[in-house]
Amino acid sequence: MEDEKIVELFLARDESAIARTAEKYGAALRKTAERILRDAGAAEECENETYLEAWGLIPPHEPRSYLFAFLGRITRHLAIDECRKRESLKRQGLFCELTREMEECIPAGSSAEEEADAEALKSTVNSFLEKCSEEQRNVFLRRYWFFDTVPEICARYGFSKSKVKTMLFRMREGLRRHLEREGYII
């Protein structure tokens, strides 16, 4: 079913919206959560929670053109939050790798104690992505949005491992400089 029709079901408060969403995007959402949670049960909980949150958010939101981006944001946030709470997950696996890589982007002098303004940070990340080429942006998002491994990115685009690693390294450097320019330092 097309995204627009699924969104119409949500707007009409038709509960079949959830079943249609699950049919179309359930596997992808679960996979995203499972990549960093490494726990099929917890990933399924994130998936189900995503539907409930979407039910509460549509309306007022109407993500007609690309529902997956809207749902994926919710799933990612739930999974990251769960990892943050679960110390055992925080210290191992892909989540550990990803957060360590993100740490490289945080400007020196940025206060770890101070909670960043989430909306402002999203906008800054977007203004950074806007300056990148489509190829760079895709690789960056496959890694940090979809949580792909480097070999998976290589297979997707036919790039060598060193090319992907170098691209990601340069983009993390670029993001750090961008954050500095945007004032993310004390």
Partner: peptide, 30 residues
């Protein structure tokens, strides 16, 4: 700012960027 806050913020990437990354070609490799 904490590492996971930045990772979470990437989630707010524009829809068109996510779409492009989602639809990006799967190459048969070189």
């Amino acid at each position: 700012m904490k590492d996971y806050e930045l990772l979470d913020a990437v989630g707010g990437a524009k829809e068109e960027y996510i779409k492009s990354a989602a639809e990006g070609k799967k190459s048969s490799g070189r």
